[in-house]
């Protein structure tokens, strides 16, 4: 589904990703862990088409399409979703009508009929239960006046409504208390299927107690220095990142 080969990315001529490789297949959950500044968020942004990043080498294909040549809205319509680390506020734009517009853009792209207001409301109310969100938040402007936890739940609600093939969760756990974390993770678990895939970017192991990954990758200085199963995450919890980084350096 997602195939990244030797991806090299810089920001204002400073190299951030230095030859990253990753293969994600349908039904899989990949966790990407790593210390601050290792390039985790850059990876999320480059995959979703944020401007300001220069791809210097390598490739990224999604469902066989050359991802790096696609406009961000086309990537979204093709089923890619980024849950933002810092969800953006859009004053005056109603949360429900925003999400209805987004879903219908995706449906149009797929050649499906657009949902009318009644059908959409039925869908959103059903999906809200996944993230235990207050209905009142549907009437508010997008993310405006939401608490940190509400914003993150709103991201997962959007994901539940848009039903992406590939979802990238960028530090969704940051700033969440344990109850909110459980709710958000529970939402993700209910959405996972044999057809879709998740890339979960996180600094801490604790999210992975709730969203159990098939693979764990350690990103350090723009490269994946170690891949393993969920046991690797537990080991990192115990020993930190330094031993791995040292090991990688001694190999190099």
């Amino acid at each position: 589904m997602l195939s990244i080969k030797n991806l090299q990315v810089s920001v204002e001529e400073k190299p951030i990703l230095k030859g990253l490789n990753l293969e994600v297949k349908p039904g899989e959950i990949h966790a990407i862990m790593g210390p601050n500044g290792s390039g985790k968020s850059t990876l999320a942004h480059v995959l979703s088409g944020r401007e300001g990043y220069s791809v210097d080498a390598g490739s990224a294909h999604y469902k066989g399409l050359n991802l790096l040549e696609m406009a961000p809205e086309i990537r979204a319509r093709e089923g890619m979703f980024l849950a933002f680390q810092y969800p953006i506020e859009i004053p005056g734009v109603n949360n429900t009508s925003f999400l209805k517009k987004a879903l219908n853009e995706i449906r149009k792209h797929r050649g499906e009929e657009e949902l009318d207001a009644i059908d959409f409301l039925g869908l959103i109310k059903k999906q809200m239960k996944l993230v235990e969100m207050k209905e009142e938040l549907l009437k508010r402007p997008v993310n405006q006046g939401f608490s940190g936890g509400e914003k993150k739940r709103n991201e997962i609600l959007q994901m539940a409504v848009l039903n992406p093939m590939l979802a990238i969760l960028d530090e969704t756990d940051s700033g969440l208390d344990i109850d909110a974390l459980r709710i958000v993770a529970g939402g993700v678990n209910k959405l996972r299927s044999a057809e879709n895939a998740f890339v979960v970017i996180t600094h801490y192991q604790r999210l992975l107690d709730y969203i159990v990954p098939d693979f764990v990758h350690v990103l350090s200085d723009g490269q994946i220095i170690k891949s393993g199963t969920k046991e690797l995450a537990l080991e990192l919890e115990e020993r930190g990142y330094d031993w791995l980084i040292e090991e990688a350096e001694s190999k190099a």
Partner: peptide, 17 residues
């Protein structure tokens, strides 16, 4: 970008904002 990432074109995004 936030609206783009949800499938909404840039022109529609500006219109909405």
């Amino acid at each position: 970008f936030y609206l783009n990432q949800r499938g909404i074109s840039t022109e529609d995004a500006v219109g909405m904002i």
